[in-house]
Design a binder for these strands. Sequence first.
DNA 1: GACACAATTGACAGCGCTGTCAATTTGCAG
DNA 2: CTGCAAATTGACAGCGCTGTCAATTGTGTC
Lengths: 337, 337
Amino acid sequence: MRVRLEDVARRAGVSPKTVSRVLNDEANVSDATRKRVTEAMEAMDYRPLSSARSLAGNRSFLVAMLYDNNDNPASTYLAEIQDGVLEACDAHRYNMMVRPLRMRGEDFVRRLDAVISDHHPDGIVLTPPITDYAPLLKRLRERQVPFASVSPVSRENNIGVAMDEQLAARTMVEHLLSLGHRRIAHVSGIADHGASRWRLAGYREAMAAAGLVEDPALVVQGAFTFASGVAAARQLFALKKRPTAVFAANDDMASGVMWVANERGMKVPQDISVCGFDDIPLARQLWPALTTIRQPSREMGKVAALQLLEVLRGRGPGRLVEMPFSLEVRDSTASPA
Amino acid sequence: MRVRLEDVARRAGVSPKTVSRVLNDEANVSDATRKRVTEAMEAMDYRPLSSARSLAGNRSFLVAMLYDNNDNPASTYLAEIQDGVLEACDAHRYNMMVRPLRMRGEDFVRRLDAVISDHHPDGIVLTPPITDYAPLLKRLRERQVPFASVSPVSRENNIGVAMDEQLAARTMVEHLLSLGHRRIAHVSGIADHGASRWRLAGYREAMAAAGLVEDPALVVQGAFTFASGVAAARQLFALKKRPTAVFAANDDMASGVMWVANERGMKVPQDISVCGFDDIPLARQLWPALTTIRQPSREMGKVAALQLLEVLRGRGPGRLVEMPFSLEVRDSTASPA
DNA sequence: GACACAATTGACAGCGCTGTCAATTTGCAG
DNA sequence: CTGCAAATTGACAGCGCTGTCAATTGTGTC
C-alpha cells in the first residue's frame, strides 16, 4: 500500500499535523523535529497525494499557461515559452497545464471562467496577446487568481517578464541604416498586439533619428504568419521605388519576404536585405541565415513562471523582470548595391 | 460558495450517490432520474471538484504525455502532437500534462516511477523514441498504467497510432526514381529510432526494386537535426561521384542539406534534388518549397489519445490506428540535369 | 395476484490531507 | 525558582466526492 502522511508521522514519532507542517515548509517547527520528519519521509519515500492536499488545503498546485491559438497552431515561440514555464513549475513541484483560449467571440471571458472553475489553477501565466485583453485581466483580478505575463503591453500592475522590444527594433533598423540603407520597409504584425506596436515604434524612432521622413508605402501590415509575409513582400516589391531592406516584425514573416525575393530572382542580401525578430530555429535554417533579434523565449517563460511562483508560495510580490535582447547579425543583411 | 454535488442532489430530490452516478455516466440510473439530475446540474452550473473526485475515486483524470527532450528542445513535431492530445483530452474532460523525460542515464525508469508516484496519471501517451524503450514499457505494464503510443516500432501489444513510414519513404524514393534519378542519397536519423529504420528500409526497398545496387557512401547517418543535415550534406557533396538527389529522413535535416547546397552554389532542384519527411511548417517556408511526406502529426496525437481514453473510460480495448500519409511534391525535386 | 429476480436508489464510511484551536513545552526576565 | 509570553505540538473535524452494500422499487412469469 502507499505510504501516507500518517505513516511518516508514526515513524517520526510526531503527529500527522507536524508532518504536514514540514511538508509545507511552515514556520514554527523545531529544527530537531523537522530533521526527524524529513528523514522519515526520505526513508519511506513518501509521496504526498496531491488530490488530498488540494481537497483539504483548497489549492491545486496547478499553474495554467494560457495562449491564443487563433493563428498560432504550434508556434515555436510558444513551445519554447512552455518549456521554460514547465522547468520553473517542476522546480517548485507545481504542475503545469496548457490551455489554448481562442481569442475570438463574445464568450472569451466565459471560457476563462470555465478554465478556472474546472481546474482551479493557483495561478496563471499569460502569453501575448492574451496579456493585454482588459476584460480578461479584470476577471482574473475579480476572481483573485494571481497571474504573471510574458511581454505585456502595460508594465504597471503586472508581474512577469518583458523585453525592451522597441529598443531592440530600433537597434535592428540602426544596423540597416549603418549599412547604408535608406529605403527601409517594415512589415508589421497584428495591429493590436503589443509586439507589433513596439516593433513599429522602434522602426519609426530609428528612421526619424536618422532624419528620414516616413514613406507610408513602406510600412505594410502583416499578421505574424509566413503567408502574411509573402503577401506583404509582393506588395512592397511591386512598388515603383522598391525598398533596399525589409525589417519584418518576426522571423516567420521575414521568411515570407525572403521567399518572394527568391521567387522574383532577387538575391538576398545583394539585391535586398531582410531581417526579422525572435530568432526562432528557422532563422538559422534559412539561406542566407537570417539577421534577427534574439529573444530568449525559453528563459522568459521560466522567469515569468518564477515570478508567479514567488507570489503563490507567499514569498513576495513578484516583479516585472527585464530581459536582455541581442542583435544577431547573420547573412541576410548587407550594404545596398 | 461553490455548488457541491450535495446541493445538486437536494435540488433534484435524490441522494448524492445518484448524482455521482449521473456525473460518472454509470449504468443503472433510470432515464427520468438522469434527466432530472442533469437539469439540476445545468441549472446550478455545477462543476465537480476534481481533487475530491480523485481522492474518493482513486483516479486522477490525468493523461501524461511523455517525450524525450534530449535533442528535441521545442520541436514542431511534438508541439503538433501535443495539440492533438490536448484536444482529445479536453473532449473527455481529462487533463493533460506534458513531461519531458531525458532518455539518458541509468535512472530513466526511476524518473518514470517518480512521475507516476507524484502525479498518478490514469494513462500515458508515449511519443517516439520513448515508445520503444523496453524497460520503460515493462515498468508501465508492471504498474498497470495504461498507455498509447505514437508511431511505436512494434505493432504487437500496442495501442495508439501508426503510419506506414516504410511505404511512405519508398513512395518518396520512387518519386525521385520516376524523375530519372539514380544516384540517390539518404540521410538517416538516429540509428535506433523506429522512424530512422523504417525510412531507411523504404529507401532501400525502392532502390532495390529499381534494380539499383546500394552504394554505402550514399547513406549517411544523421540525427534528425538541422546541424546533422548540414554535416551529412558536406560529406555527400565531397564525394567524387555526387548524388543527384538527397532524401533526408526528416525536414530539418533536409533543410540542412539545402543550406549546404546553397553554400556551394548548387541550385535546388536543377543541380540537386532534396526532399524530406514530416511536412513541418518549415517545409513551405524554404526556398524552393520542400518536397516531403505529409505526416498528420496533430491528428496522430489526437487519435493516440482517443485510443487511450477509450481504455481509461472502460469503453473498449483500444487499437492501433493506421494513419494515411501523402506525398507532397513541391519545388525542391526535379529531373536531374 | 404472488413470487423470484433484476434494476434502481440510498446510507454511510472514509479517501489522505490541512485548518482551527487548544494543550504543552520552552525560553527568559526578575 | 517563579511566572508569563512565545514557540511548538497535537486533537479533531471535515474538505467533496465515491465505494460498498443494503434497502427499495419495478418487471416478468405462472
